[in-house]
Amino acid sequence: MGWPGHAVLQVPVIELEDWIVTRTRHYDAGFISDDPGFHHAHITVLAPLTSWDVEAIAALAASSKPFDFELDHVDTFADGTIYLHTDKTGEFKQLTAGAWLAHPQVRPYGGDDPLPHLTLDRLSAQVGVASTEALLDGLLPVHGRANALELVWYRSNECHLIGRWPLGG
């Protein structure tokens, strides 16, 4: 049967959508969604979700103000994940804390103090920070606006938007 999939509560990063779609297609085109509401480029708020509280997500979104953010430099985690760092970690951590309160069974990013980020790639013999920065040439810094929470489903050939809630109601 394979991986059953899971949902992700996320903030879309429209400015990098084309770049992320290209990298995703490079690795596994099954994760390219044909749902026009689905955003591949995102900063995760909480994952993995196998069940969720829609009312709590709506309340969190309504009580959270939209904010601008910048993705300014490429870095790596110890596990080899290459990511873009955001200057608004406090605001994203507040969203994660609110979502986690409603879904205490989920450990955000598998830990207790997650670092908000946009995943770009993974270290390998062919991929590194320098090669990723070269592919991003001219795109950084990215100036985005967090104005919605999206709940999306991830599973190969089944990626789609479940729901979207504007920040601030």
Rank of each mutant, 00 (worst) to 15 (best):
H73R: 15
D112H: 14
G90F: 09
V127M: 10
L46H: 02
V21D: 11
L9C: 02
G169A: 15
R107C: 02
T132H: 06
W52R: 07
T89Y: 02
I57A: 03
L101E: 15
L140H: 04
V129H: 06
L118A: 11
D112S: 14
D121H: 14
A58C: 12
A7C: 14
L84D: 07
L120I: 05
R25N: 11
T81M: 04
L101A: 14
R107S: 08
F38W: 01
A97G: 02
P12F: 08
A29K: 12
R145M: 12
W100Q: 02
R164T: 09
G169V: 03
H73E: 13
G169W: 06
E55Q: 15
L9A: 02
M1V: 06
L123F: 11
G169H: 11
L84M: 08
L95W: 14
G144C: 04
H143K: 09
L167V: 03
R107T: 09
T50Q: 12
A61T: 09
F69V: 04
Q105G: 09
D87I: 01
D28C: 09
P116D: 07
L123Q: 11
L95M: 11
S64D: 06
G110H: 00
E91D: 15
G128Q: 06
L149Q: 05
D79I: 04
L95R: 07
F31Q: 01
T50N: 10
H143V: 02
H117K: 09
G98M: 04
V11K: 00
H39R: 04
R107G: 01
W100Y: 00
T86K: 10
Y154A: 01
P12I: 06
V45H: 03
Y27P: 00
S131R: 08
A130L: 08
L135F: 07
T22K: 13
T76K: 13
P116Y: 05
G138D: 14
F31D: 00
D79P: 03
S63D: 15
V142K: 05
P4A: 05
A146P: 09
Y154I: 03
R145F: 06
H39T: 01
G168F: 05
D34L: 11
P104E: 07
L115W: 12
D79S: 12
A61W: 11
G30Y: 04
E158R: 14
Y109A: 08
G163D: 14
L135E: 14
L46P: 01
W100A: 03
L49A: 09
A148V: 08
D18E: 15
S156I: 07
T132D: 07
A59I: 05
Y27M: 06
H160D: 00
A99T: 06
D75H: 10
G138F: 12
R145W: 06
T89P: 01
K88W: 02
H103N: 04
P48F: 12
L9E: 01
H143M: 02
E158Y: 12
L123E: 12
D113Q: 07
D72H: 11
G30K: 05
T24Q: 13
R23N: 09
S33V: 00
I14Y: 01
R164V: 03
A146D: 13
A134Q: 15
P36S: 04
A125Q: 13
I14D: 05
E91L: 15
S124Y: 08
V129E: 11
V45N: 02
Q105I: 05
T86C: 11
Y27H: 14
P108Q: 10
L101K: 14
E158L: 13
Y109Q: 13
L9P: 02
